[in-house]
């Protein structure tokens, strides 16, 4: 269970204070994967970063009783000069997992072919996304935070990721952001919608989508 207790987050900008997340209480319980919906800049990534422990909320706290992946998918954690395999080795050392097995897993999962041993700067964005996703899947987390990570992959890769998650559904959940409703329906059963700093949880994806469409329409 991940609990957000009275968290609040603001950013200072040149044009005043922006309240990204207004005071919020929220729980992510085991056995349900959650989609985070919102317009660009609504605070989806900020929410994921606070859950991942990368950023601290201004007030309140994040209580975690599960292991949570770093909010990957944003692929700037790669060093472009290093190959995919070398970037993976670094993560293996960080989490102390077996390098050989992880390499075999990611090589198969991300399907990079010979590019697995080429510098990451030569990758297409789809390949980077697949590598990032494969790399976080190589470590056994209880909750995976995926920030737009799946939108880069093609249909084949999405199917592959879905199968992989299906297999570890009993242990692992996802909290993901995406603008693609199909991707969300593939992976999630509930959603939270962030609009103007208000975080609203929905147990039903249809209701969440309806509300989100309202938000989109209102902002148009």
């Amino acid at each position: 269970m991940i609990e957000l207790v009275d968290i609040e987050k603001t950013y200072n900008t040149r044009y005043g204070v922006k309240r990204v997340i207004k005071p919020t209480n929220l729980a992510f319980y085991r056995g349900a994967s959650t989609a985070v919906l919102g317009l660009n800049g609504a605070g989806k990534s900020t929410l994921l970063r606070m859950i991942g422990g990368v950023e601290k909320p201004d007030r309140g706290k994040v209580v975690k009783t599960v292991t949570v992946s770093p909010p990957l998918g944003i692929t700037n954690t790669f060093n472009g000069a290093l190959t995919g395999a070398e970037n993976l080795k670094f993560v293996c050392r960080l989490y102390d997992i077996d390098i050989k097995r992880a390499e075999a897993f990611v090589e198969d999962f991300a399907d990079l072919g010979p590019y697995f041993h080429e510098p990451v700067r030569t990758y297409s964005s789809g390949m980077r996304g697949r590598l990032a996703f494969g790399m976080s899947m190589a470590v056994d987390f209880q909750v995976y935070l995926i920030d737009e990570g799946l939108s880069a992959g093609d249909a084949r890769f999405r199917q592959k990721s879905r199968d992989a998650f299906e297999r570890r559904k009993s242990r692992s959940d996802i909290i993901m952001t995406s603008h693609n409703m199909n991707t969300i329906r593939d992976f999630c059963t509930r959603a939270v919608v962030i609009d103007d700093g208000n975080v609203t949880p929905f147990e039903d994806l249809d209701a969440a989508e309806e509300f989100y469409m309202e938000v989109v329409a209102r902002r148009r």
Partner: peptide, 23 residues
């Protein structure tokens, strides 16, 4: 929580040094 169907188990993903982690 079974680890058998997992590609490989690394405990709970916590870095080594935590309790009950042999290696």
């Amino acid at each position: 929580m079974s680890l058998s169907s997992f590609p490989y188990g690394s405990g709970s993903g916590t870095p080594r040094g935590g309790p009950g982690n042999a290696g």
